[in-house]
Simulated assay, not measured.
Amino acid sequence: MATSLKIDGGLKSRVQQLANIRRRSAHWIMLEAIQQYVDREEARDWLNNWGTDDETTVPECHK
């Protein structure tokens, strides 16, 4: 699935600088950031429902 992402020049520059320092591609840096964000949000949703009638199963560990 191809997805396009528009980011401002300042953020683009910061991502590229970080990619250079980490010896990774800017693409890798952005994918890692998105994955961490999604994992964190899924865990937060689960915690907010923990112990309620709407409680769901524990989110899958992706690591």
Rank of each mutant, 00 (worst) to 15 (best):
43 A>D: 07
57 T>P: 00
37 Y>V: 09
14 R>Q: 09
47 L>T: 10
26 A>H: 04
41 E>T: 11
38 V>T: 06
42 E>N: 03
17 Q>A: 15
9 G>H: 07
56 T>G: 03
40 R>Y: 14
40 R>S: 15
10 G>Y: 02
55 E>W: 10
32 E>K: 15
52 T>G: 06
51 G>D: 01
34 I>M: 11
50 W>P: 00
54 D>R: 10
8 D>L: 01
6 K>T: 08
29 I>S: 03
48 N>G: 06
1 M>I: 04
19 A>Q: 12
43 A>S: 07
49 N>W: 06
1 M>Y: 08
31 L>K: 04
32 E>M: 07
7 I>C: 02
48 N>K: 14
14 R>K: 10
39 D>I: 10
41 E>V: 15
43 A>P: 00
45 D>Q: 06
8 D>M: 01
43 A>C: 03
31 L>E: 08
45 D>A: 15
49 N>V: 00
63 K>W: 02
41 E>W: 08
11 L>C: 08
61 C>H: 07
3 T>K: 04
52 T>K: 15
36 Q>T: 12
5 L>I: 15
26 A>D: 06
7 I>Q: 06
32 E>G: 12
50 W>S: 10
53 D>P: 09
1 M>D: 10
6 K>Y: 00
33 A>H: 03
4 S>C: 09
11 L>D: 14
57 T>C: 15
35 Q>W: 08
26 A>N: 05
43 A>W: 08
19 A>F: 12
62 H>Q: 13
37 Y>S: 14
25 S>A: 05
6 K>P: 00
24 R>I: 07
20 N>Y: 06
6 K>A: 11
50 W>L: 10
23 R>A: 15
53 D>T: 12
30 M>P: 00
38 V>E: 14
23 R>G: 12
22 R>H: 07
43 A>T: 02
3 T>V: 12
45 D>C: 09
40 R>F: 11
6 K>V: 04
39 D>C: 10
16 Q>P: 01
27 H>P: 01
23 R>L: 10
63 K>F: 08
14 R>W: 02
35 Q>T: 12
20 N>R: 07
47 L>E: 14
54 D>F: 03
9 G>D: 15
32 E>F: 10
63 K>Q: 04
2 A>Q: 04
62 H>S: 11
61 C>M: 09
31 L>M: 14
27 H>D: 13
31 L>C: 13
24 R>Q: 12
45 D>T: 04
10 G>V: 02
19 A>Y: 14
35 Q>L: 07
15 V>T: 04
45 D>G: 12
63 K>N: 09
20 N>K: 08
10 G>L: 01
57 T>L: 15
54 D>V: 00
43 A>I: 01
26 A>T: 12
12 K>E: 09
19 A>P: 02
8 D>Q: 06
21 I>V: 02
43 A>Y: 11
15 V>Y: 03
41 E>C: 13
10 G>P: 01
5 L>V: 15
32 E>V: 03
53 D>Q: 14
14 R>M: 03
37 Y>K: 10
41 E>A: 08
22 R>N: 10
34 I>P: 01
13 S>P: 00
54 D>C: 05
25 S>C: 04
50 W>Y: 11
6 K>F: 04
56 T>W: 03
4 S>I: 05
17 Q>N: 11
46 W>L: 03
16 Q>F: 07
31 L>D: 09
32 E>C: 09
46 W>N: 05
44 R>L: 15
